[in-house]
Amino acid sequence: MRRYAVPAPPGSQITPESTWLRRRQILKALALAGPALAAGCGRAEDGAGAQAAELPGEPLTVTGRSAYSTDETRTSLRDATHYNNYYEFGTGKDDPWRRSGRFKPAPWSVEVAGHAELTGRFALEDLVKPHTLEERVYRMRCVEAWSMVIPWVGIPLADVLKRFRPTSQAKYVAFTTVERPAEMPGLSYPVLRWPYREGLRIDEAMHPLALLAVGLYGRTLPAQNGAPLRLVVPWKYGFKGIKSIVRIDFTESQPATSWNLSAGDEYGFFANVNPAVSHPRWSQASERRIAGDGLNLLGNRIATLPFNGYADQVASLYAGMDLRIHY
């Protein structure tokens, strides 16, 4: 099947670099980015020049290749890292990259609690080390009706969760984002009930498509994309992909989730991509794809597929459920 073909080389080599390497855009970024870019420069490899200065994060060794990847045209690295929703840094699409310069993704640890045999605080390195990092090129469909194609680097969520040996009472998994007002200027606004919370049913969390990502385009996650550890659930709307995770809870009852708490009639717990169920204020039948060099204005709109095109893999999780009610 074409859609799930094994990908070619890692994303860092395929990204249309011309888009973001153009001199004008570098100058613009330098002028606008301020502290964020200054920090990026400091981390760049020696002597690599302007090209390295623009690349976010550190290179990752990616050994595994996933058969779940799509070979659709990818979003450019620049767009994927400069057009984000991460309200802890602000509600504008450019706030996350502009205003995340003070964010410190290291050292990092995750608190694991609830119905599991192994709980406690784990350093990020210890969580990741036993696993092989693999690249997965997934479609990412935002609830705002735009989408991207992003090469993530990560570990199947199930592989990590199984190490904590969840008990039979663990019916759900809840995640919490870090809450650091000094580093995340958006937290001063009561937009959502902070900290950001998300959750999955345990069978969803154990599904092989669910990914715990530590990188994109072959490099560690930049702050604006959820450094250093985030969830990627490609068959659900993007807001389910909680960023900068500091806590994992195995719970017996369905956990409260941030968007559902704020506007339950607009954002459900399941939030599976579903072209048949409209958002109260806009249609979900189609989406604008942000990919390639962004020059072709016409033809960016494509039909939205049930479960974001992953129906063959995940539809059985919801057998017998009315997805109009459980949106």
Partner: peptide, 14 residues
Amino acid sequence: TIHGDLGPDPVARL
């Protein structure tokens, strides 16, 4: 538009 400088979501910007 001609210079492709409308940002990541050019249609929304227009």
